[in-house]
């Protein structure tokens, strides 16, 4: 049987499938099908293969991968109908519009709330998790990471705090970490991502990563740019032993800082090392290790640079240290200690 005959057999098989879809077939049609099936063994094979395609397309209806195509088709139908001179009843068009909106909602839900396993640590607790692919996830205190692996991607989301990722190489499944609306994409490398109220920090220990942010809804994510020319992709300059600091908020430009990577990963050993870091950032880190909560109420105090090494969890030592070094005042309010710069 030639390729053209096979094509013709498939075409007729598809026509039969559609005929079955339209409603019950009568006896004459049944005979016609019987005759066609008896005419050549390839016809039966073609019908079997098209039937399989038909059935699987039906089974895939609820698959998240198809939801976008469904929403697109429904939208196209309701728009085409609006332009058509003999459009249908308006209520049908509205019903279709509503259906398309529901599907979009499902897309959004899948996009923003992927189902996965979430690893959390409490205050002062640290945890190392070996992931299925051999990657290692280290969670700092008061942190949470959601992990979702499937056949095509390894998608992680930093929900709070800080985590370090040592990524097992698997070029077929990109390893991505999303924090806020930024995404760090890695292949085989080690890096950490840390979330603060006002910024996100990526520290690279080894290899390379891309740092992307969501653009307008209809565009692909784009590279976070450096402040200055506002054009250079920040991740291109992100070498090992460098930290990229991306302020939260729409499209704010990022900056780079050199870090001592040995010190920067000291938190895994239970030490907090600060090197000219804003007091606000230092306080957020210290709070991950202690039930005593430190607070700063004014931006001037929050911006004071602090340096030093502290044992994680020993908040009192940290308080004594900064109070002595910078002449801060401390006020206790229940479980909260408020730090204030002199004269504030």
């Amino acid at each position: 049987m030639s390729g053209g005959d096979l094509e013709a057999a498939r075409e007729q098989a598809a026509a039969w499938l559609m005929r079955f879809h339209e409603g019950p077939i009568d006896l004459e049609e049944e005979l016609e099908l019987e005759l066609w099936l008896e005419a050549h063994p390839a016809n039966r094979a073609a019908l079997a293969s098209v039937e399989r395609a038909w059935r699987m397309a039906g089974a895939a209806a609820e698959a998240p991968e198809l939801v976008a195509a469904r929403a697109d088709a429904l939208k196209a139908l309701s728009q085409a109908d609006r332009q058509s001179p003999r459009g249908w009843r308006p209520e049908l068009r509205h019903a279709l519009g509503a259906l398309a909106a529901c599907l979009l909602l499902i897309v959004a839900t899948f996009h923003f709330y992927p189902r996965g396993e979430t690893f959390r640590t409490g205050i002062g607790e640290r945890r190392v998790v070996m992931l299925d692919d051999g990657s290692r996830l280290s969670l700092d205190a008061a942190s949470a990471v959601e992990v979702r692996y499937d056949g095509e991607r390894r998608a992680l989301r930093l929900l709070a705090g800080r985590a370090r990722f040592e990524v097992a190489k698997d070029p077929r499944r990109p390893f991505t970490v999303t924090a806020g609306d930024r995404m760090v994409v890695a292949t085989g490398t080690a890096f950490s991502v840390e979330l603060f109220r006002a910024e996100m920090r990526v520290v690279l220990y080894q290899g390379s990563v891309s740092v992307l942010e969501d653009g307008p809804a209809d565009q692909a994510p784009r590279h976070v740019v450096l402040q200055g020319d506002g054009r250079t992709p920040a991740d291109r300059m992100l070498a090992p032993s460098t930290a990229l600091i991306v302020p939260t908020g729409a499209s704010a430009a990022a900056r780079l800082e050199t870090v001592d990577t040995a010190r920067s990963s000291a938190w895994e050993q239970g030490q907090l090392v600060f090197s000219d870091e804003p007091l606000g950032v230092a306080v957020e880190r210290v709070n991950r290790y202690s039930g005593v909560s430190l607070a700063i109420e004014d931006p001037v105090t929050a911006a004071l640079p602090v340096s030093g090494t502290f044992n994680a969890g020993d908040t009192e030592a940290f308080i004594d240290g900064v109070v002595t070094l910078y002449g801060l005042r401390k006020l206790r309010r229940g479980e909260t200690v408020i730090l204030r710069a002199p004269g504030r």
Partner: peptide
Amino acid sequence: RIFTLYRIE
């Protein structure tokens, strides 16, 4: 679009 509307919707 046509296939999705016919087969799935």
